[in-house]
Design a protein around this nucleic acid. Structure first.
Length: 254
DNA sequence: ATGTCGCCTCATAGGCGA
């Protein structure tokens, strides 16, 4: 079973890219972030054999799950703040597995309200991850975490030092997720591989020089970790015309 | 500071978020 995640930076601008990638890789489940649209074009993907559910918001954020198997929505909002209106969270059951799609707040600039929101959001997620792992349902939590976990996950730590994605606090919270028992699928299979990124800035030819960061992650509860066979970043869509600034990453589970 | 996208509107230019 293949489960993938991809920040597509506007579903309307990138629907063709998504279709091409579905054709090429044929994943069972694909999580999308940054839809940037009020409506999700479900019909387009139904023609491809994918059911879809989405949480949308005009112009900003937005997450969707595409699946070949039936999707049962559990929750469309992260617990812990009823006033939070951002479309950043979608929890569903697919084939007996809990699938959680997240678009974690960016948090820039450091020291702003946005940074506080990021930290609060990460703490809310920590609580949920704690309660999920205490249960017996196999759980996958994936998406754009907007966190660079370690120095190895960016081309040059000094150029990210002042960025919200690389601050000690979000990085500590990310580690706290792993300390609960979740497995970072990519890093567990590629422990020392450098230069493995999922995002490159549009400017300064960042992709050509592989000046990127690894911020899109797939975390697995222990029972899914035991089924982990592969985890790869597919850089090819990033090299196409009018690409998203992120590349898709996927796991293969036995 | 800057670079580049995609979205929106007090809309064909500028601001915001990334």
């Amino acid at each position: 079973m293949i489960v993938a995640t991809w920040n597509i930076n506007s579903i309307n601008a990138r629907a063709q890219h998504v279709k091409e990638w579905l054709n090429a890789v044929n994943p069972d489940v694909l999580l999308l972030q940054e839809l940037k649209a009020s409506e999700f074009p479900s019909l387009v993907f139904r023609e491809f054999g994918y059911e879809s559910v989405a949480v949308t918001q005009k112009a900003y954020n937005g997450v969707a799950i595409l699946s070949r198997r039936p999707i049962e929505v559990v929750s469309t909002a992260l617990a812990g703040d009823d006033a939070d209106e951002h479309a950043r969270f979608l929890e569903a059951m697919i084939d007996g597995m809990r699938v959680v799609n997240i678009y974690l707040p960016n948090g820039n600039p450091v020291g702003s309200e946005k940074f506080i929101y990021k930290i609060t959001w990460m703490n809310r997620l920590l609580k949920q991850m704690q309660s999920w792992i205490a249960g017996s349902t196999p759980t996958l939590v994936a998406g754009d975490y907007n966190v660079i976990p370690e120095d190895i996950d960016c081309h040059k730590p000094s150029s990210w030092m002042h960025d919200a994605l690389f601050q000690p606090e979000p990085r500590a919270l990310y580690r706290a997720y792993l300390e609960l028992g979740y497995i970072d699928a990519f890093r567990s299979l590629h422990p020392d591989e450098k230069g493995q990124f999922t995002f490159w800035d549009y400017f300064r030819k960042a992709f050509d020089y592989n000046r990127g960061i690894r911020i899109d992650h797939i975390l697995l509860s222990p029972s899914l970790g035991a089924r982990l066979e592969r985890c790869e970043i597919d850089r090819s869509p990033r090299g196409k015309e009018k690409p998203s600034d992120h590349a898709p990453i996927f796991v293969k589970l036995s």
